[in-house]
């Protein structure tokens, strides 16, 4: 199975499971109370493109406000894009109606960060898991009940848990319930928005192992939104690092961590806390904070914090370009091949 993941079964020309093309999401911001005028746009997601192959995991990494969660909401069709397209199996997902929309909903599911907010406290666990099946009229009642039991067992819970309410479970168990409900309709893609960061350390490992096992058995692709590089390294096949609405570096996971190029990725990497007191790598401490998205710096958006900024970084925005095969970086430091 692992070989199958590194070597796509279909040819390189084949359409990937998910293709995101030049995706943009701008939120207008206004001034005034009586006379409201639009002052500009907050570019939450600004020209983002990536693909996810079937059965693979893409990690979307960045700090809060970098646009990774907005991107995931666009992929989930919970937000309408300002520009660009999201294609699932070659078909655009926004503006779908009727049967096509139902089909898309069955194929793309999600697990969110906070297991205390993502389960309806007034619904029994069985009903929560069955919801996607009930609304898509997946089968008869007994077939659905059967599937719920199957899912509970698959995520490591017991069939009788179906009759209980969410408050009777711990955080880790709730996240398993959330995963079971995401798996119900046999999706091809699950958006995982910080799926383990709200869990206790000893529970995180269980959840990560479970996610990997399920990927192997169901051949489901993940879009993993995360801020912790160690988790990302452990979980993903491909990584895209985002800063202020844009992808600044993307590469296959092993490749990226072998030779990190973009100064921001380097800073993120050195901010990962050591797993032993003697492990201290190169330390890049960024000065200052992420600028306000209402006041986007000109040129490279990272130049205000970058320790290696060049004169052209202030004036010209670097494009995302391939510097070695399949490794793309948006940085002037690598503009000369």
């Amino acid at each position: 199975m692992t070989e199958a993941l590194t070597e796509p079964q279909t040819g390189p020309q084949a359409e990937p499971l998910l293709r995101v093309e030049n995706l943009r999401k701008y939120y207008p911001f206004t001034r005034g109370i009586v006379f409201v005028t639009k002052v500009g746009d907050v570019k939450a997601v600004d020209d983002v493109s990536f693909t996810i192959a079937a059965g693979e995991t893409l990690g979307l990494v960045g700090e809060s406000g970098c646009g990774k969660t907005t991107t995931s909401k666009l992929v989930l069709n919970l937000e309408q894009p300002t520009g660009g397209r999201v294609l699932l199996q070659g078909k655009p997902i926004h503006g779908l109606k009727g049967e096509a929309r139902r089909e898309y909903r069955a194929l793309v599911q999600a697990v969110f960060q906070d297991p205390w907010a993502s389960l309806n406290p007034r619904m029994r666990v069985g009903k929560i898991i069955a919801e996607a099946l009930v609304v898509t009229k997946w089968g008869s009642r007994s077939e659905i009940d059967h599937r719920v039991v199957e899912l509970l067992v698959q995520v490591g819970l017991r069939p009788e848990h179906a009759l209980q309410y969410p408050h009777e479970f711990s955080g880790g168990q709730r996240q398993r319930i959330a995963l079971a409900s995401a798996l119900a309709s046999k999706p091809k893609l699950i958006v995982l928005d910080e799926p383990v960061s709200a869990l206790d350390v000893s529970i995180r490992a269980q959840m990560m192992n479970l996610l990997k096992d399920i990927q192997e058995s169901e051949n489901v692709a993940y879009l993993l939104v995360a801020h912790d590089l160690a988790t990302v390294r452990h979980m993903t096949h491909q990584v895209a690092v985002m800063y202020m609405g844009q992808i600044v570096e993307t590469a296959p996971t092993e490749k990226l961590f072998e030779e990190v190029r973009h100064p921001y990725t380097k800073a993120l990497l050195s901010a990962v806390l050591p797993d032993h007191p003697d492990h201290r790598g190169e330390e890049i401490v960024l000065s200052g904070e992420v600028p306000s998205p209402m006041d986007m710096p000109p040129g490279c958006r990272f130049h205000t914090r970058c320790p290696f900024a060049l004169p052209e970084c202030v004036t010209h925005e670097p494009a995302l370009r391939e510097i070695t095969p399949s490794h793309q970086v948006a940085c002037h430091l690598y503009s000369d091949p």
């Binding site: 000893s202 995180r204 160690a230 988790t231 797993d275």
Partner: peptide, 14 residues
Amino acid sequence: SVPKMQRSAARLHT
């Protein structure tokens, strides 16, 4: 049980 930056393991200890 914490994923390591230095080396990646297929499965984490739980």
